[in-house]
Design a protein around this nucleic acid. Structure first.
Lengths: 213, 213
DNA sequence: TTGATCTTGCACAGCGGTGTGCAAGTTAGT
DNA sequence: ACTAACTTGCACACCGCTGTGCAAGATCAA
């Protein structure tokens, strides 16, 4: 009744080693997107040879890592939203920030290679929501109306990544980074810095430690 | 009188081939910062083997390319300035935009490798000027005062690179890109999108075809 | 025309990476 | 304690890249 053909369940540490590999890959790929399997395996406390016991190829590992990151971010983003497009954009910035490491590792991997098709769909919704928010904000008169919403969305995404880079360079804390990514995003949307702070003041939950529901 | 010890001047095409190599490298490195010598030589109409007749190593080629780009940008930037810090930032965006290909190739190369020390000094002045402008703009009340000038400068630089990427992705024309890079930079400085357009309207020269003096 | 200069095509060594095979060891389920 | 599952360390083949040597050819200056 239990296993069909396998006489024995897989060893318990197999799963944990697998996780260790994915963890190590995520951390190391944040620094160098072309880190070798040797380095990753060593960081996970294993040998390069042992990796092939869990993943048939290097690319398989990277793909799974990227897919997990995409799922994680997509999940967090789907769980929260706001009626006000400006607040929603701030919220998106905050949520993505909370997943920086995953986002960074993911994008670093996705850039090189034909993974765009597999990851795109998971990340597409975020972009779509940004475009919609930008359009609505422009219609209301709070967001910029001088550029197509598509371009505004790209500017906001770019601002977020700039903060991501700046955070590793300057060693920003999570709290500082969270504030900065929101301010930068709203600036790209066309708000003045005073207006951006007004949004923050009226929506204190954006900076709360716990993720808003 | 003429040559000191050399019985013959170098062949005329040697210099042109050398330029062709640097040109090809600049173009190709804009797409892939790790393009092989083989690819670069082929694009220049030469063989990989011939490259070593001009440059002792791959790294030498990249270094010279980066140094040239840095000099070019630094020269353009040193030739123009404005009293108004906000206008000056817009001007910097415009000047850098005019040298995109060089800037991109340069940064792509500089990221990997210990060239930062050799290139930094040439590019440092731009960053310094951005920091100073950000500080002055904040003091006047036109620029954002909620972040240290150093961070504001990074945001502006990041916005510029975002536009650079967006331009290749969306195939922006030079004119469109020039306008976009200025708007994005002023947004990062904390201006609202309406204020940014006011700056543009009052300084039409920023969008002129010829470089301002 | 002459001859140095530059290019080419080949071959070779070296480096670092991936992916595999296999025998021996270790670990954790039953 | 037994045994399958997992790890290790070695070996190897393969790939793409850099850098070098050398002989033969093309090209341009004098």
């Amino acid at each position: 009744m239990c296993e069909s053909a396998r006489p024995r369940a897989p060893r318990r540490d197999a799963a944990s080693h697998r996780e260790a590999l994915l963890d190590a890959a995520r951390v190391l790929l944040n620094e160098d997107p072309e880190t070798s399997l040797d380095t990753i395996a060593a960081a996970a406390g294993l040998t390069r040879r042992a990796v092939y016991g869990h993943f048939p190829s290097r690319n398989t590992l990277l793909t799974e890592l990227a897919e997990r990151g995409a799922d994680r971010v997509a999940g967090a983003v789907a769980r929260a939203s706001s009626e006000d497009p400006v607040v929603d954009i701030a919220l998106l910035g905050r949520l993505v920030w909370d997943e920086i490491e995953h986002v960074r590792a993911m994008t670093r991997v996705v850039v090189h290679g034909p993974l765009r098709e597999r990851i795109g769909p998971a990340l597409g919704p975020i972009h779509d929501r940004l475009v919609a928010d930008a359009a609505r904000a422009a219609a209301i008169g709070t967001g910029r109306a001088d550029l197509p919403p598509e371009v505004v969305a790209r500017l906001i995404e770019g601002a977020a990544f700039t903060v991501l880079d700046e955070s590793t360079r300057a060693g920003l804390s999570r709290v500082e980074g969270r504030r900065l990514v929101i301010l930068a995003g709203l600036g790209a949307l066309g708000l003045s810095w005073r207006e951006a702070h007004t949004v923050l003041d009226e929506n204190r939950a954006l900076l709360d430690e716990e993720t808003a529901r």
